[in-house]
Write a protein that binds this DNA or RNA. Structure first.
Lengths: 340, 340
DNA sequence: CTGTTAGCGCATTCAC
DNA sequence: GTGAATGCGCTAACAG
């Protein structure tokens, strides 16, 4: 039985009603399991609905009932990054629990695109938004266009607006990693950073800087790069540092992309990179299977997504809007020795 | 300036019209850039719209105009798998080019959930669906509930229905990988497979089996597992094979999860696993950075998503529905020697 | 160029 | 227990 395209009609509630000689209201009630309708009538209706393959139009339903559309918008920079795809998994897990679906939007880290995406989602009637913002200022998420649509910021705190957020311990995690490198005797530690315009960028740099300071080590600008979170650029930056007369003996990468860049930069060295220690923020799959040892600032991105979605739905459920809340996800330093 | 929750009103088109002393139609026309309206009137309207922060309701618009909702549904089993998240990237790339957004649905490989998700998306008015189906039979994607909603199957051909699909060269890629192992002198090759109920599962097994047959090698059941595409199970299966009296000298993994399992199984061996060669379907990030050499059947999952979305929009655009089409994405065998 | 009428598909409100 | 009227927010189709 193949699906022919001979414009099979899309039935409406009235069609179902007419064939049964009842009013649309009866169909509506039967469909929603509302009480106040005869048991036999309900069965007749449901049978006809199944026979015709009628499907209610949820947009029309929402229009009239004014209730929530059971739809949350998820705005990220790039789903190909495992952090974001895992975040998405978390957001969806919680959302389905509330009967809601997730609408996706990628910004490519462009604030202008971010605004467009957010606006579009609001026009499409999302009940709330989980946003991983690319910019440092979030005023555009507060003013006119959003109105009542609640927003939860993930991975960065709200600036210029006052909304819920879920943070990762960027500062603490990076500081701990840097301390560990220092404890292992490293004195020249290169930092492969992110743009300071990103919250994660400035916080992780801050963790690195403080750990150095606490150890009485100088911060050498030649050992600090601020890339775009692109592994190729990070690799380039790492190579540059390692080509210095007094190269760093350890590299600390500010995110998973930069860790990959650092590893690549070490790949083809005479010693296979063994003379340089690498640490990085974010987990990396198969970190325990690499030819180099690797220390990672680890946490669960899925949980970040779950927490964000929970904040959204809790706010939606509460009659009196609670004050903005802030959830922080802890990090753990995990050591991955090389195999053998 | 913070967003207070003091129930700021959500304006409607009439509100805007009233404040301007014009009719809603004028606002509507101005908003959609429709011609046949005074230049000054348009400006006044747009100014008021901006001042109020009014946003049109796209659901209501679609309801009345009957046009497409510019919404595509993407149904996958698990976004955390890089294959699916990259697929999603591709689907979104093409969709935004057509002004459409992507709605997400995860099934966890449960056919019942898959049906629910698909039905829900149809009720929400998606213009089309890209589905990575968990089951072998897809009749549920053809009959009543879907009606006119076009479907594109990704990673498996339609069975029981007649729709567009995008395939990866599962059979050819696996055969090529297995041939390569044989060419390198391997005679006992373990296969870490997927459930035969999955298209990719049976096709990749077929490629393995044929390569063996072509080389006159027997197919030994002890060397074949059919897991769930779970890396822990794959690891277990690999360990079992390697514990045989005459263990395989090479492992061929049917997907990225199984490749990870294979690598893990080799991790703690006395020789570090160097005596066993690993090959696998799907790319793996940092494949070139592992301590073991790895041969992979590589292809671009983003392109799979792009191709699927293109099929969807092309069909939507064409007045006379074209016959079901089938796009196959080629694979390349890529050799990753271990570093050093 | 602008306004009026009507109705998309459905659910609230009130009759019966 | 069921049905009729009315309107959600918006836009075709037709006036003027």
């Amino acid at each position: 039985m193949s699906t022919h395209s001979d414009s099979e009609p899309t039935y409406t509630m009235r069609d179902v009603a007419q064939r049964l000689g009842v009013s649309p209201m009866t169909v509506s009630r039967a469909l929603r399991g509302q009480r106040g309708i005869g048991e036999d009538t309900r069965k007749r209706v449901l049978a006809e609905v199944a026979a015709l393959g009628y499907r209610p139009n949820k947009a029309a339903r929402g229009l009239r009932s004014g209730g929530p559309n059971e739809l949350v918008g998820l705005v990220v920079t790039n789903l190909a990054n495992p952090f974001y795809s895992q975040l998405a998994v978390g957001v969806e897990q919680i959302s389905v629990g509330y009967g809601a679906r997730v609408m996706l939007g990628s910004t490519g880290e462009d604030p202008a695109v971010e605004r467009e995406v957010v606006t579009d989602m609001v026009e499409r009637g999302v009940d709330g938004l989980v946003v991983v913002s690319a910019g440092h200022d979030h005023s555009h998420l507060g003013g006119g266009p959003l109105r009542d649509t609640p927003v939860v910021l993930a991975a960065s705190p709200p600036i210029g607006i006052d909304v819920d957020c879920v943070l990762v311990d960027d500062f603490g995690g990076t500081r701990q990693a840097c301390r560990e490198l220092i404890a292992r005797g490293h004195r020249r530690i290169g930092f492969l950073g992110l743009p300071p315009s990103l919250w994660t960028g400035s916080e992780r740099l801050r963790g690195y800087a403080l750990a150095l300071e606490e150890a009485g080590l100088p911060m050498d600008e030649r050992y600090v790069s601020q890339g775009r979170g692109d592994s190729a650029l990070a690799e380039e930056a790492a190579r540059t540092m390692l080509a210095l007369d007094d190269p760093p003996t350890a590299l600390l990468a500010a995110n998973n992309r930069n860790t990959v860049g650092a590893l690549r930069a070490l790949r083809d060295r005479r010693d296979g990179g063994a003379a340089v220690t690498v640490a990085g923020f974010d987990d990396i799959e198969l970190a325990d299977m690499l030819h180099l040892p690797l220390t990672l600032v680890s946490y669960d991105p899925v949980e970040v997504g779950r927490a964000a979605a929970r904040l959204l739905f809790e706010r939606q459920a509460s009659p009196a809007p609670p004050p903005p809340r802030r959830v922080t996800i802890a990090t753990t330093l995990v050591d991955h020795p090389a195999p053998r």
